[in-house]
Structure formats: structure tokens, C-alpha cells
Simulated assay, not measured.
Amino acid sequence: MEIKTLQNDMIAAMKAKDKGRKDAISALVSAVKKAAIDEGCREDIPESLVDRVILKELKTAKEQLDSCPAERTDLLEEYQLRHDVIKEYAPAMMSEEEVRAYITEKFAEVVATKNKGQIMKAVMAELKGKADGKVINQVVADLCK
């Protein structure tokens, strides 16, 4: 996802007077810019950074939604809208089957050792941001049996 796409969608939401959507996208743009400044790439923001920030913000929004008291319907609606908007921009994650195929194909030598620690060390860096950590852990545990 490019930062330009987020900015254009934010402008479109402003023109449509959709305050909730505009606020959610604006928060994403701000988080991406802050991360870019922190990493020293403010002028040329890579798509991988944008995707990483979106996933982090999605996780935060999910935690807000899960921890919100049920009687606070106003907050629940706000958090749900924010979560849904961020989810639209989140990169698609690999399925369990895709993760299994990727690991067995690309990391065959490490998988043959049946050493879960070594496999996780090799695989996690490669699949970070592409697949859920829980899915990766489950697949690796299955492969080590």
C-alpha cells in the first residue's frame, strides 16, 4: 500500500463529509509518517513500512474493540468503524496452507533438522507481515512432530 493511496482516500472521505472514515485514515497517515521519520525515510516511504504500520494499527484497533465495555455503545461503534476502515487497507495474510507450502519449499534444509528454534528463527524474519505469527508457530510445531 502506498502512502499516496491513503492520502487520496482521506481527501475523498473529507469531500464526502465522512468524519469517522476520515479520522481513521488520518490516524493511519499520521502513524505512517511518524514511523517514516523514526526510520529516516520521510521523503521516500516504502510500501513495506506502510503495510507494517497498518498491521500494527489494526492490532491496536482490535485490542480497543475487545477491551471496550459492552455498555459503552458509542465507543464500540467508533472503535468498530475504525477497525473496519483500517482492515480495508491491511495487506492480505497468508493462509495456513500457503505458510506450510512456503516453509516446506523454501526452508527444507532447516525443517529437516526438526529444531523448532532454528526453524522459527529462519522463517519469522522472512514471513513477518505476510502471515500471522500464531499460524506460523502452529505450522512449525506440526512440521517438528
Results as ranks from 00 to 15, higher is better:
16 A>D: 12
20 G>D: 14
70 A>H: 09
45 I>S: 06
29 V>T: 09
42 R>N: 13
56 K>G: 04
74 D>V: 06
24 A>T: 07
48 S>G: 01
54 I>N: 07
64 Q>R: 12
29 V>R: 04
56 K>S: 11
56 K>W: 00
30 S>E: 12
23 D>G: 00
43 E>V: 08
43 E>G: 13
43 E>T: 13
46 P>G: 04
17 K>R: 15
16 A>T: 07
31 A>V: 12
36 A>G: 05
53 V>D: 01
13 A>V: 10
13 A>W: 06
27 A>Y: 10
28 L>N: 03
19 K>R: 13
45 I>T: 13
41 C>Q: 15
38 D>F: 07
59 K>Y: 13
44 D>A: 15
25 I>T: 05
22 K>D: 03
15 K>H: 09
21 R>L: 05
51 D>L: 03
42 R>W: 02
33 K>G: 04
39 E>W: 05
16 A>P: 06
24 A>M: 08
18 D>T: 05
61 A>Y: 08
31 A>L: 11
61 A>W: 01
48 S>M: 10
34 K>H: 03
71 E>I: 09
25 I>Y: 11
26 S>H: 04
32 V>E: 07
54 I>M: 04
37 I>R: 09
29 V>W: 08
18 D>A: 15
23 D>V: 03
24 A>N: 01
14 M>T: 02
23 D>T: 09
73 T>Q: 11
46 P>V: 03
14 M>A: 08
57 E>Q: 12
22 K>H: 15
46 P>H: 03
41 C>I: 15
60 T>F: 07
24 A>W: 05
64 Q>W: 14
66 D>R: 02
62 K>L: 10
38 D>M: 12
32 V>R: 01
70 A>K: 12
36 A>L: 04
44 D>H: 09
32 V>N: 02
42 R>C: 02
72 R>F: 14
66 D>N: 08
42 R>T: 07
14 M>K: 06
47 E>M: 06
54 I>A: 00
22 K>Q: 15
26 S>Q: 11
30 S>A: 13
25 I>V: 14
70 A>Y: 07
26 S>A: 14
66 D>E: 14
19 K>H: 12
15 K>D: 11
65 L>A: 04
74 D>T: 05
64 Q>Y: 10
71 E>G: 01
56 K>A: 08
60 T>S: 09
43 E>P: 00
34 K>L: 07
65 L>H: 06
71 E>T: 01
22 K>T: 13
67 S>W: 01
40 G>R: 03
28 L>I: 13
31 A>D: 12
21 R>H: 08
27 A>S: 15
62 K>T: 14
65 L>Q: 05
43 E>S: 10
50 V>I: 10
19 K>M: 12
24 A>L: 11
29 V>P: 05
19 K>D: 10
71 E>V: 11
72 R>V: 02
60 T>H: 08
61 A>N: 03
69 P>T: 06
44 D>M: 07
31 A>S: 15
53 V>T: 04
34 K>S: 09
51 D>G: 10
40 G>D: 08
38 D>E: 14
40 G>A: 06
51 D>R: 09
64 Q>C: 05
